[in-house]
């Protein structure tokens, strides 16, 4: 494990904790994309099927996988719960969440069928999950750009999530040079994902770090 990987994983962890804390402490779901959160459940469930094949890697690896599956499910349950407790806020959230996810799902499936390490169910689902993860934040970014404003904690959530994938890139350089290991699918999808975030990072830098509110173009 190198520092980039550790800090990458930590920022991924932080992003999820920030989101859960946002929902629980502010008692609001305003500005959160249900679709993006639903996609993450699908991503973790399809990626970590290897938990069932008992291909044990390490304690850390298993715990993190279980945490990502559990926490993504928990977030969806929290959002779903507001359907009863806060029907108006729930309806507003769903109404604002207009991104067509079927294109992301279809596109990821096509890419997974074209690019995978083996034409088997597990390998295709793994590939599907990395392609889908590279674009899963789009409904959330789309929502943000439409409303033009967002709660600062939602912004920090997206920032931490983007930071996680960005840190994985130097991690792969490290692993290539130090360990001689390389994974073309992970690297390509990781770069796609970081590019998706790059516009957001730019606006984050301009607006949040130099003061003022946030509004995506």
């Amino acid at each position: 494990m190198n520092l980039f990987r550790i800090f990458g994983d930590l920022s991924h962890l932080a992003s999820i904790l920030i989101l859960i804390r946002t929902i629980q402490t502010t008692d609001t779901i305003d500005g959160i994309s249900f679709k993006t959160q639903g996609l993450y459940v699908l991503i973790f469930l399809t990626r970590y099927l290897d938990l069932l094949t008992f291909s044990y890697v390490s304690f850390y690896n298993t715990i993190m996988k279980l945490f990502f599956i559990g926490s993504s499910l928990y977030i969806v349950i929290l959002l779903q719960r507001s359907r009863k407790t806060k029907p108006i806020a729930y309806k507003e959230m769903i109404m604002a969440d207009t991104f067509k996810v079927q294109y992301l799902l279809g596109g990821s499936l096509v890419m997974a069928l074209l690019f995978n390490y083996k034409f088997s169910l597990l390998e295709i689902l793994w590939s599907f999950s990395v392609w889908l993860e590279s674009v899963a934040i789009l409904p959330q970014l789309f929502m943000l750009s439409k409303s033009g404003k967002a709660k600062s904690l939602t912004i920090h959530y997206i920032f931490a999530l983007g930071l996680y994938r960005t840190l994985y890139i130097p991690n792969w350089f490290w692993r290539y040079w130090v360990e001689g290991k390389f994974d073309k699918l992970a690297v390509v999808t990781g770069i796609v994902q970081t590019l998706v975030y790059s516009d957001f990072f730019y606006v984050y830098y301009k607006k949040v770090l130099t003061g003022g509110g946030l509004g995506l173009p």
């Binding site: 990987r5 290897d50 890697v57 996988k65 390490y117 994974d183 699918l185 992970a186």
Partner: peptide
């Protein structure tokens, strides 16, 4: 051959 990066990363 198992792809080590796919195998041990998250």
């Amino acid at each position: 051959e198992t792809n080590i990066i796919k195998h041990d990363e998250l």
